[in-house]
């Protein structure tokens, strides 16, 4: 199954909340994916085998996978747009 990772500074609270929201939204659309919240410090390890990275902190560098804006899933502002990006990344 394709993997989505969500990273925030501590791996608690925000990343967990965004991960569970994204999982719920994908489930509603019938899209299967594994969504995991990780600590930003372990990002480099996890990014290797994921299809898309949802960032809650400002991306520090270029990544080999598509990067989405996780804050949209917290505030609801621009959420549909970001969700579409996640879905496209999972399909490709």
């Amino acid at each position: 199954m394709k993997k989505v990772i969500v990273a925030c500074g501590s791996g608690v609270a925000t990343s967990q909340t965004v991960a569970s929201k994204v999982k719920k939204l994908l489930d509603q659309k019938g899209i299967q994916a594994q969504v995991e919240a990780v600590d930003i410090k372990s990002l480099d390890t996890f990014i290797k085998d994921c299809a898309v990275y949802i960032a809650i902190t400002k991306p520090a560098k270029q990544y080999p996978v598509p990067v989405c804006n996780g804050i949209a899933f917290l505030t609801g502002v621009g959420m549909e747009n970001e969700l579409q990006k996640v879905i496209e990344a999972l399909r490709s």
Partner: peptide, 24 residues
Amino acid sequence: ERERCYPTGLRTAPYHVAIPHTDP
């Protein structure tokens, strides 16, 4: 430190909030 590196202000409409948090 955490707030400096990874700020927690949210531009929620119409009122902004912040959700500071750090290592468990």
